[in-house]
Structure formats: C-alpha cells, structure tokens
Design a protein around this nucleic acid. Sequence first.
DNA 1: CAGTGGATGCTCT
DNA 2: GAGCATCCACTGT
Length: 201
Amino acid sequence: MEALASGPTAPAAARSATEAFFARSAHEVARELVGATVLVDGVGGRIVETEAYASDDPASHSYRGETARNRTMFGSPGRLYVYRSYGIHWCANVVCDDDRVGAAVLLRAIEPTHGVEAMHARRGTVDARLLCSGPGRLTQALGITAGLDGHAVDAPPLELFLSETADVVAGPRVGISRAVERPWRYTLRGSPFVSRPRPRA
DNA sequence: CAGTGGATGCTCT
DNA sequence: GAGCATCCACTGT
C-alpha cells in the first residue's frame, strides 16, 4: 500500500490511495480488510474479524449525529476511531465514507504475527489465541488508546498492508442490542483467532 | 462447557 | 441514572 503523502493539514482535494480505499461503504471495506495486516510500532498481525457500522445504522455510534465522542467518524476516511468500551477497554475502528459520513469498520480480531513478545507482555496471557481475539484484547495487545484516535492508518506508528482476496464468512454482529439481525460481521473462514464462537468447521 | 456478575468511565436520556 | 460495539473470574453441572 502506498504511503500517505499528505498530512492532516493538506488540502482535502488531494485524496491519497488509502483514503480512496476507505471512501466506500463500510460493508465493502469490512470484507476486504479481512486478511489485511495492521501494525502499530511494528506490532500486530493479520485481521481475521471485522464488523461494519453504516451511517444509517441504529447500532452505530454515529446514528444520532455528531458528538464529542464520535467526531472522528464524521471526518476523513482511513483514520482510526478509538473509543472506550464498558469503561475499561478501548475499541478501534477505521472510518469509511460511502458518500455519507459516519460509517466505520470495527476491528474485532487479529491473528498475531508481528511482535508477539510485546503482545504477551502487554496482555499477560500465554495463550496465543487470546492475545488479539476480541476488540478490547487487540487494542491492548497493539497498544491502541485514545491517543491514536483520528490518526491515519498508514501514517507512523501505524501501517496497513492489504491482502489478496481472502475466504470471508458473513454473520451477525456481536455485543449490540439494536439491528442485531444484520449479518455485518466478517470473519476469515476457519480461523482459530476470531473472537466469538469458536469456528465450528 | 454454560451461565452469572463485577470492574469501570463516559455519553446520552 | 441507564446503558453500553467487553473481558475475566468464578460458579455449577
């Protein structure tokens, strides 16, 4: 993937390749991010689980309009939206934009491939399957906090490498109470590193 | 295994 | 004051 040439203050007209990739529906982006590799300071791995949150989605933080918390969701695509979950964990999204602002893709699980030692140290677990298999776990393992909110996903310390097409399965989202039935959770088929139900086959 | 409850902070009603 | 896009420890089968 190309490096992001323009900084935060660059003219909006000069949209980078990364921004263009994320300037689509959260569904397309969520599906294509499965199989991609994301690193923070060289620590991370292959994305095996994502969820799409659309702009007109009752389950999305952006549904009721812009607030102080979700401001990043209404900005440039290709940036991280980081928020605190249940008062304890951080959750990381990538902002999308399919003509309507307020869409994003939640990163739910990663297969650890880079900097596994650092992840173990941060997480304090010995089970590789539990290092990044959940939105709160993966932010802890990669060291993602509110400090990275609004940060471009391809600007240091973040790196993103897209992949060839992966074998992706769609299913219902996890942990939400509204629009529960929408099958907007995307997982890498058969991966033992997804967060929820152990893949049965 | 399945089910329950506690921790903990912030947003919105 | 309720309700979370969660995780973990602990209980009982």
